[in-house]
Amino acid sequence: MSEIERYIAPKKLDDALEALAGGPVTIVAGATDLTPQITGGKLSYKATLMNIQHIEGLNAVTKKGGTKKDGKIRIGALVTVSEIRGNHMLKNHAGILCQAADHFASEQIRNAATIGGNICNASPAGDMIIPFLALGASAELARWQDGSIETRSVPLDEFFTGPGRNMARDDELLTAVTFDVPPENSIGLFRKSGPRPALEISTVSMGISGELTEGTLKNVRVAFGAVGPTALRGKLTEAALEGKILNQEVIQAAALAARKDVSPIDDIRATKWYRTHLIGVFTEELLNNVCQN
């Protein structure tokens, strides 16, 4: 463990970004990923430790516009999993996020864990990543450039580059996650598995969203977790469903496609066989749930 030379807790985004531009900084939000990684020796502190929890303006959930194309939802990086879980607007418009929050860790961890931390940690098993991928969300990144803030937006399905790795540069902070307000006829479902009902890291996880009109699914997005080096979009599954009337034949074809979409590994938590098996089971289960509702 290397020594922390400086600890800062800026209130202004400007100050935080300036500090980031100025040299090696370890960012900490809820510390629920960082602390175990440091004590486990997987990571060491950089010279400056920056607590971002006090930065103003990063902890809001806002909706601008309606469900007709122009609407946007923006979730600040410091919003906690508990806040997502209890947010009524999200329940109405993006319930899949609340479902994932429901299955996340335990009360104590949910109170501390931020969505920024979950996304930047870039675990293939990160539970909030799945609903965001299914919602077609983008990461908003900010940095200090020539005396002012410069932001860019990266679609989440391009953001993850490997286990624990993402596209954010060293001088960039994730400030928010944004996505279009899903239309009225949208569906969104999340499923996660682990041997225990509580406090469990996903063996696999899955999310699906789309628009359902008269039994037909459109604009389908499928996301899988813990089945590859990063959380990923299930392109074959999406193709098997797009524009189709949801019946048993289509569901079976989608479950088959899902098994092809994923490339899990054997590790101590599960074998490749079991992860692939579960992806098929979950795909069927979620689509059957769509049919039933």
């Binding site: 225990r196 009902p197 509580a198 406090l199």
Partner: peptide, 10 residues
């Protein structure tokens, strides 16, 4: 994380 003792809901 990987040695799984039962939790209350179980």
């Amino acid at each position: 994380r990987d040695y799984k003792v039962p939790t209350a809901p179980e």
